[in-house]
Nucleic acid binder design. Structure first.
Lengths: 235, 235
DNA sequence: ACGCTAATGTGGTCAGACCATAGGAGGTGG
DNA sequence: CCACCTCCTATGGTCTGACCACATTAGCGT
């Protein structure tokens, strides 16, 4: 039954080491050659496993010598989630429509949690909104700040899983959002509207009006996708 | 500027081929050796990229000859999402608590969507609930069916992104759920309660009572985690 | 004590070899 | 002509060994 492929063995070993606490964030993995001989597999198999961990955001690899070299546990979930969602959308495993709807669900949850949390800190989000007032922003720059804003809100809600998913969903549809922006006739008017909506949402959140904030964010997102020609016939 | 590492080049090539429609689900990738020579990289670099795609659920590889051999685009997001979330939880990138809260958000959204959809089909979910009535189920079997039930609901809602995320979140905390079950003193009573709650939820959904269904699913999940000793102090 | 240089440790990559497997081609016997 | 068996071929899976690039460190010479 030794069906397990060599690289899976490496992956499993590292996973159990993580679960059992033998490996913790910040730790360095053994050198590839050592891992290979320890586990009785070839170095190429070790590398395949490490590559997976790297793309998933669990490790960072560095050449050379010293404390920053080798494979280090970092556990930054953003990159991995983005890569996964982007590739799945590209491969048509995730319909664009479902991505947008999922974003709507998560965004609503974030806004709801924030508005209901008396200890909320929307300072970062306010800063981004202020930065979006600059008059000479290109659509690309504006949309980049928009992504930052929504991400800042997700982070302020304190749920790293949701924040990672939001970042990933946004990345996955980034090129489509970009393309949609170019199809908007009066960009300045659209941007002005988005600015107003952002402030309204933040005001509702800071006022603790969860219901109003939820409605606003819903309309904000569906409105944009409708205008950019990305939405289907859903609510 | 040829900073890109060889395997990233392979990954990018495949991604752009997907985005441009040169590769579609069901298609076969060129053989590893051919890809390597085409892109001017070594075969091991190609393999590292393919390994990433495989773990993310984009391709399936098969040895031998014929139409089922080679790397085939499949785009089944479940496996990739599960692997990512499981590893991130193991590496402490995702706190268990946030995973549970995210599950709550998604599950509520699923139930809400189902209850509000006049064309809903909860037949699969009903079947699983019926199967859970078997008297001689071990806790492990019972929990496995429970996972199936929640997944069936997610699928019935028609959003594959949410379904994949739910499956992944469940996988990520599977071992903890399992451990929690063993710590429950009166398992039979707990299981009976879960059965009742499942039926109540399905009844509310089929009755189109979204609000009641939402409340029930919330209490269902938080109740279990509280009993299994997995929950923190949140609502 | 300082500064340059060589050695060392590490990931990144490639080339080549071999194995296991699955299908197909082609021969062989009925 | 067909059925079966055998060998060939294409493919992924793995290992080994060899380089390279890079960053640190040890050691040497002044």
């Amino acid at each position: 039954m030794p069906e397990a492929r060599a690289w899976q063995l490496v992956l499993e070993r590292i996973e159990t080491d993580l679960l059992d606490g033998r490996l913790r964030p910040g730790d360095r993995l053994p050198p590839e050659r050592e891992l290979a001989s320890t586990l009785g597999v070839g170095r190429s198999s070790v590398r395949e496993a490490l590559r997976v961990l790297e793309v998933m955001g669990l490790i960072r690899t560095g050449t050379g010598s010293g404390p920053t070299s080798g494979a280090i546990i970092i556990a930054t979930p953003r990159g991995g989630m983005s890569a996964l969602l982007r590739l799945q959308v590209a491969a048509q495993g995730f319909p664009l429509d479902d991505v947008v709807r999922t974003r709507l669900v998560l965004e609503s949850a974030v806004i709801d949690a924030l508005a209901s949390d008396p200890d909320r800190d929307t300072g970062d989000a306010r800063s981004v909104v202020d930065a979006m007032d600059a008059a000479d922003l290109t659509p690309a720059e504006f949309l980049s700040l928009d992504a930052q804003l929504h991400l800042a809100l997700a982070e302020a809600s304190g749920n790293v899983v949701i924040a990672a998913m939001m970042a990933g969903l946004r990345t996955a549809i980034e090129s489509y959002v970009q393309a949609g922006a170019e199809g908007i006739a009066d960009w300045d008017a659209a941007a002005a509207r988005l600015r107003r909506e952002h402030r309204s949402i933040l005001d509702a959140v800071d006022a603790g009006d969860a219901e109003r904030a939820r409605t606003l964010i819903h309309d904000h997102i569906t409105g944009y996708y409708a205008q950019a020609g990305l939405a289907r016939s859903h609510d």
